[in-house]
């Protein structure tokens, strides 16, 4: 330890220990997130098993084009995110900023499409609540499908919004030149978070949009 890095906190011995601790902490947090969404997935699984027809009906109301495009957009944002991490490891300041910005734009696109979808569904009276209307003898069960649709995609979108905030903060810091090849932990950690949010959507897409298409 000839020269201590400015980003080294007092209670760590060196940068390696700090990086390892931070990464492990992020993974532990993601475990928590898996089980947080897991509670909703468990609910989905139960009602899907109980009311398969209603879930097929509900799924038919969703627009597969929106879902598929959003999947592609989110996968694209994962690519730009991982490239931001890549250039952070190489310490190329402008490229970090550029790819963070690209990720932010793609994330914004996803949320925009989601907002359009939401407004269609709410307009069609598919938001569970007093205004819920669905013309079917099993409308109550379809309502449960839409409860899960809104709860799961809503929680997912909330995570995206948090992610967008984190990306903006990273961009500011990257612009200031805080990240280089010797210190880029925050970029890497936000990357992990962002990919996790992507994974949640990778499961939500088939479970909500694709079932009962045939």
């Amino acid at each position: 330890m000839a020269h201590e890095h400015a980003a080294l906190q007092h209670h760590f011995d060196d940068m390696d220990q700090q990086l390892e601790a931070s990464t492990l902490g992020m993974w532990a947090f993601l475990i928590t997130e898996v089980l947080f969404f897991g509670g909703l997935f468990a609910g989905y699984l139960i009602y899907r098993t109980k009311f398969p027809e209603a879930f097929d009906l509900g799924s038919h109301e969703l627009d597969i084009k929106f879902g598929a495009i959003n999947t592609a957009v989110l996968i694209g944002s994962s690519l730009t995110m991982v490239l931001a991490v890549y250039f952070a490891q190489l310490g190329q300041r402008m490229k970090i900023v550029f790819f963070l910005f690209a990720t932010l734009v793609l994330g914004g696109t996803f949320l925009g499409i989601k907002a359009v979808e939401y407004s269609h569904k709410i307009h069609d009276g598919l938001l569970p609540g007093p205004g819920f209307t669905f013309d079917s003898p099993i409308a109550d069960q379809v309502r449960i499908f839409f409860s899960f649709y809104f709860a799961m995609t809503g929680l997912h979108a909330f995570h995206m919004i948090i992610g967008a905030g984190l990306l903006s903060w990273l961009m500011y810091n990257a612009w200031q030149g805080k990240y280089d090849s010797s210190y880029n932990t925050p970029v890497e950690l936000v990357g992990l978070y962002w990919h996790f949010v992507d994974i949640v959507w990778i499961f939500l897409f088939p479970l909500l949009y694709l079932i009962g298409r045939n």
């Binding site: 492990l24 993601l30 475990i31 898996v34 089980l35 897991g38 997935f41 690519l79 996790f196 992507d198």
Partner: peptide, 29 residues
């Protein structure tokens, strides 16, 4: 995504265990 974008493929065994634990307990639930 986990193996490549999240670098688990290149990470320590501990990261593997952490990543697997979340899904294992999800399956239990």
């Amino acid at each position: 995504v986990i193996l490549y974008f999240m670098h688990v493929r290149y990470s320590s065994k501990l990261t593997w265990i952490f990543a697997a634990t979340g899904f294992l307990f999800l399956i239990i639930l």
